[in-house]
């Protein structure tokens, strides 16, 4: 117990010293904190550097800081200024395009890319990759594949990207065959894509025609087939109650019953709507299986490539 208290006194003593040091040089705290958000090289006395903060180098620094802190629309402005000051700066052009991708303004990013780099074949790999990515974001997969075959990517990358693009194009069978043909590819991402393809090939799809037919026979049955059980129950009840009410109206007042006609038309609308909805539900079911596959590939294109 005694030993422990002595130790704690010892350490609190050190802590006190440290605290004192912090207090006596209050500015050291300032600089430590500010180095995260301010230009680190500007902590020099003012008279030594009467610098132009709108010149090329400083604008570039500031723009990169804005990009890193996620202030993209402000960063885009600054990158544009840097490019205006130095039209040969290809890296900044690359970053400007990236900024517009971050702002989800793909058409603008594409138009800038085409303006900056009109000749695809002469570009370095980094820029070619960006070009293909832009086509992926704007869902021009055919164009992307054409560019990929012309590009200077190494064969391993080329295989991975090609597999990813054929998944995005939803050519499942072809993608499966391609994957089996190049299993020796050492890239883990390639095998991740391969798993996506195999999973999609093993999944069971629903037939829209069958769903519609089933719903035409018994209202709601098509939705049981597409595994939307709650919707099936509601569709059956909606159609059933309306038609039953119409039947009651007609049997009481004959063919001139207003009550009957109102509920008959409601029942008919729900009956037709349910057939329509069952076809749509089957399509949606298939769409979801496809989306699950393509979503994973799109995420890889977003964060890895």
């Amino acid at each position: 117990m005694i030993r422990f208290s002595k130790l704690s006194v010892f350490f609190t003593g050190f802590f006190g010293l440290w605290l004192q040091a912090q207090q006596t040089s209050g500015d050291s705290l300032t600089s430590k904190h500010d180095s995260i958000i301010r230009n680190p090289s500007s902590n020099k006395p003012a008279e030594k550097k009467a610098q132009d903060i709108f010149n090329l180098q400083n604008s570039k620094k500031f723009a990169q800081y804005l990009f890193k802190t996620g202030q993209y629309s402000y960063a885009a402005e600054e990158f544009q200024r840097v490019i205006f000051l130095n039209p040969q700066d290809n890296d900044t052009k690359y970053q400007l395009v990236e900024t517009y991708i971050q702002l989800h303004n793909i058409p603008k990013a594409e138009s800038y890319f085409n303006q900056f780099f009109p000749l695809f074949d002469t570009l370095p790999v980094k820029f070619q990759k960006q070009s293909v990515r832009l086509d992926v974001y704007s869902e021009n997969y055919e164009k992307a594949i054409k560019k990929l075959t012309r590009s200077k990517l190494d064969s391993i990358d080329k295989q991975t990207w090609y597999l990813g693009l054929s998944i995005l194009e939803k050519r499942w069978k072809e993608a499966g065959e391609y994957y089996q043909a190049h299993v020796s590819n050492p890239d883990p991402v390639y095998h991740q894509f391969g798993n996506v393809v195999l999973r999609r090939l093993g999944a069971k799809t629903k037939s829209p025609f069958l769903a519609g037919t089933l719903s035409a026979v018994v209202p709601g049955l098509g939705k049981v087939y597409t595994e939307n059980y709650g919707d099936a129950l509601m569709a059956f009840l909606f159609t059933g109650i309306n038609i039953w009410q119409a039947y009651r109206g007609f049997s009481k007042d004959g063919i001139k019953s207003v009550h009957g006609w109102i509920f008959a038309s409601l029942g008919a609308a729900f009956y037709l709507g349910n057939i329509f909805g069952s076809v749509k539900a089957a399509k949606r079911h298939n769409q979801k299986i496809d989306d699950d596959a393509t979503q994973e590939v799109k995420a890889v294109f977003d964060y890895r490539f």
Binding site: G230, M234, A269, F270, L272, G273, N274, G277, K280
Partner: peptide, 19 residues
């Protein structure tokens, strides 16, 4: 649009989960 809306109306229930 009318049929789509009617279908949506019949899907709008407390059982419309998971999808």
């Amino acid at each position: 649009g009318f049929l789509d809306g009617i279908d949506r109306l019949s899907r709008c229930s407390p059982f419309a989960n998971n999808h």
